[in-house]
Each structure stands twice: as C-alpha cells, then as structure tokens.
Amino acid sequence: MPAITWEDPFCGEGANCFRLGTDLDGNAYITISGAEETYLSDSRDALRALILDIKAGKADHLI
C-alpha cells in the first residue's frame, strides 16, 4: 500500500463522508471515511471532476 496522505473527511448533509488523499508520486485517492485501506485511485483531474460533480449535486447518488 502506498504512503497516502489523507485530507480531513468531507461529509454531506447525511452520514455520507469521504476522504481524498495523495501520495508522493502525485497519484490521487478517494475512499469512504473510516475505510482508508479500501480506496479508488485515478488521476487528480479525474477525481477532482468527480468531487466537483458530487459537491454540485450532480452525482450525490454515488455516495
């Protein structure tokens, strides 16, 4: 498992919380808060687009 630096959890209005992280190679990660050992990885741009859509209410059903 890479050394991932996790940001503080982002929580929506309900109990849905997720965390973003990065490693020293510049890879980006996303996980459900509390499950940091199980994560998705993609480019920063792809994850940034996903998070912006979630925050804009376009993809809240994914959480």
Rank of each mutant, 00 (worst) to 15 (best):
L47G: 04
G34S: 08
I63T: 15
M1I: 08
A28Y: 02
G26P: 01
D60E: 10
M1L: 13
I51T: 05
R44Y: 11
C11L: 10
I63V: 13
D42T: 00
F18C: 00
A35R: 05
D25M: 02
R44N: 02
R48T: 14
D53S: 08
G12D: 15
D23Y: 06
E13L: 09
D60I: 14
D25R: 12
D53W: 01
C11W: 06
Y39H: 06
E13N: 12
A49D: 12
T5N: 14
W6S: 09
T31G: 04
H61C: 11
Y39M: 05
L50E: 09
E7N: 06
N16W: 01
Y39S: 03
D45A: 11
D8M: 06
A59C: 04
R48L: 13
E7W: 02
L50N: 04
E7A: 15
I63S: 08
C11G: 10
K58R: 15
L47F: 03
G14W: 04
I54E: 05
D45N: 01
Y39L: 04
A15M: 11
P9V: 11
C11I: 05
N27F: 04
G21P: 12
K55L: 15
L24A: 14
L40F: 14
A49R: 12
T22F: 01
L20A: 04
Y29F: 15
L52K: 15
R48Y: 03
Y29Q: 10
S43A: 01
L24K: 09
D23V: 01
G26Q: 00
Y39N: 03
W6G: 09
I32D: 07
A3L: 08
D23R: 07
C17A: 07
